[in-house]
Nucleic acid binder design. Structure first.
Lengths: 207, 207
DNA sequence: TATAGGCGAAGTGTATACATGTATACATTC
DNA sequence: GAATGTATACATGTATACACTTCGCCTATA
């Protein structure tokens, strides 16, 4: 039960919607639950705070973050900016072998698409493409932004019905990449992200 | 002596080049120096790790980060991406009052330009512009990237000679903003950042 | 009745003590 | 002589105990 293990566990619960946005994360409570003292819990909470999933206020404890619609809008704009740039760089470094791997991951994520693991497959697909850009920090930043959004996607909506359409959009991106139509692929990604943002914002407004 | 205070102090030393990249940050040593136990030191190190200024390895302690030229290149590309977007959004929201404030900060930063506070004035100018974009998270991300770079700017070079030229570039950006020539201003900023990247990379190679 | 002030409980923050892991130097073996 | 095993010193990780802050609740007073 290291702080990293605890952080991973809590991260999973935050992203699965078990711990809803705004929830107070009591040190004593978590310490009892994980069977450790409060010190490793504090470390775990600091790790999550560094990732932006948790807010720590001195003498007042930690709580799961809560976002306003404006912040969600900003995060999706940032993702669009960073992910489209990453896609362009990846497209410039594309090889037949790379395209093959991307297509393999796409098919696999297609199988994962049913059920709660939907988001994992989706991200596996995008990450596989982005990796070929060779931008480690950029990928870390994208991943952090994505996690923050996912917190709310999971909490507010499970998006089961949208799956088929999304997978079609994945297919479009791969097809454009294969043909070397970089800007077409970027447009596809932009629409993909915009659709997610619209969907999430609508759910936030409704609840 | 709260963890936040300690983190701020260490951040300052990291950015001033007192603590060189790669330096080991011993918990006991820092605890003695700040006159506290190791617990708040650990918290401070976690905060800095969250900001990307420090790397923590389990059971092996913390050290000031060290960047490769490739990483510096990536960071400047990210800054260009995020800052140019921020500038465009700010330009779209520009008002006479905003322009006046920007010009006031520019003149003030002109005075600060001599000496070690050069970087503070430079950032004050850019931040003043970016604020009008109303993008809090984006600004935080830019600030984090900028800090990471500054770590190496301070450590490897003090950039005293470049000051006059840089201030001229600031003036150019303001002038284009005033005339509503957004893309010209963006080009100015791009050149500004590219100049800094080139300068820093050259110094890294030389040392 | 409304409000200001002050207990008191609950939770976080920190210091001390102890447990655990890592590195260095030396001894041992092939 | 090189490589591996081992012991010791040192740094980090964690638990317990105590100090401090915060916030709710109660009481006294206008």
């Amino acid at each position: 039960m290291t702080p990293e293990t605890i952080a991973r566990e809590l991260r999973g619960e935050l992203m699965a919607g078990v711990l809803r946005p705004g929830t107070d994360l009591s040190q004593v409570e978590l310490a009892q639950r994980f069977g450790v003292s409060r010190i490793p819990i504090r470390d775990a909470l600091r790790i999550l705070a560094g990732e932006g999933l948790v807010e720590i206020e001195a003498n007042r404890g930690a709580r799961a973050i809560s976002l306003t619609p404006d912040e969600v809008r900003e995060i999706y704009d940032l993702r669009t900016l960073l992910e489209c740039d990453c896609l362009r760089r990846a497209a410039a470094a594309m090889t037949p072998a790379a395209l093959e791997e991307i297509e393999r991951v796409r098919l696999k994520s297609d199988l994962d698409a049913v059920g709660a693991e939907w988001a994992d497959g989706d991200w596996a697909f995008h990450r596989t493409i982005y990796q070929f850009a060779g931008r480690r920090r950029q990928l870390v930043m994208i991943e952090a932004l994505r996690r923050t959004c996912l917190l709310f996607v999971s909490a507010y909506a499970t998006m089961p019905t949208k799956t088929p359409r999304w997978l079609g959009e994945h297919d479009d991106i791969v097809r454009h990449l294969r043909r070397g139509e970089t800007e077409q692929a970027v447009l596809g990604l932009k629409g993909h992200l915009e659709g997610a943002a619209t969907h999430l914002l609508a759910h936030m407004m409704a609840s």
